[in-house]
Structure formats: C-alpha cells, structure tokens
C-alpha cells in the first residue's frame, strides 16, 4: 500500500514512516500542507495520514483541494485515497467532524502505541 504522511512534526513523520515501512508499505512524506497536496497529486497514494494543524495549509484545506480535483476532473482524479486525520487538538475534531470534511478516520495525538495506528490504517486500506 502506498501511504502519504503529511505532518509538520519531523519525529511523527519519521516514526510513522518507519513503522509503515517495517510492515512493508511504500511511504511518501510531506512536511506541510502545500507539499502534502503536491505529493498527493503526484503519487496517488492509497492512504493519507493528514495532520490538522500545519503552517501554510491545514489538513482540511488539503482535503478540500483534493475534493475540488475530482469535481473539475483533474489528472489526479481517480479512486480517492483513504484519509486518516490526526490531530493533537482533540477538542477540535473527532470521528464525526472528520467524516464531515471527507476523512475516514480520526486518530488523536499523542498515540498510545504507533503500531496500533498502523494496524488501523491497514484495516482502513483493506490490506489486512
């Protein structure tokens, strides 16, 4: 499975990326929303970890842009990647609001166990 990780926190990208790779997935990383949107369009991932609060472009804004793509029939259009919204501001988002903005799952930070998060992603991506 091709996984895109969009998070401005280096250690989060690193740990999540490493855990995913350890499970045999292909990982693409992006350090902010802008880069995330670019990589998303480029690589057409199966699954995206999307942080909410990032400098420049926030996670929901990235999602909105992707939605826009499918409407105008851009090149990136096609079967849409599954999205896991991750956020430290748990008060701001929950599973429900995540659904509303087009994400499939919400995982609050901090993670209790990184591998559990990867397992959730695999379930969502249908690789497990």
């Amino acid at each position: 499975m091709k996984i895109l990780i969009v998070d401005d926190e280096l250690l989060v990208r690193k740990s999540l990326g490493r855990a995913c790779r350890a499970r045999g997935h292909e990982v693409v990383e992006a350090a902010d929303g802008q880069e995330g949107l670019m990589r998303w369009r480029e690589t057409k991932p199966d699954l995206v970890f999307l942080d909410v609060l990032m400098p420049g472009m926030s996670g929901p804004e990235v999602l909105q842009a992707i939605e826009q793509d499918s409407v105008v029939g851009a090149a990136s259009a096609g079967p849409r990647a599954k999205v896991i919204l991750i956020s430290a501001y748990s008060g701001e988002h929950n599973v429900e609001t995540a659904h509303q903005i087009g994400a499939h799952l919400f995982v609050p930070k901090p993670f209790e166990d990184i591998f559990e998060v990867v397992t959730k992603a695999e379930k969502l991506g249908g690789t497990q």
Partner: peptide, 8 residues
C-alpha cells in the same frame, strides 16, 4: 507523539 512513537 514523535518521541514516543519513534521510540516504539
């Protein structure tokens, strides 16, 4: 989160 996850 990064620290703990990376450690894990």
């Amino acid at each position: 989160t990064g620290i703990r996850s990376l450690a894990q």
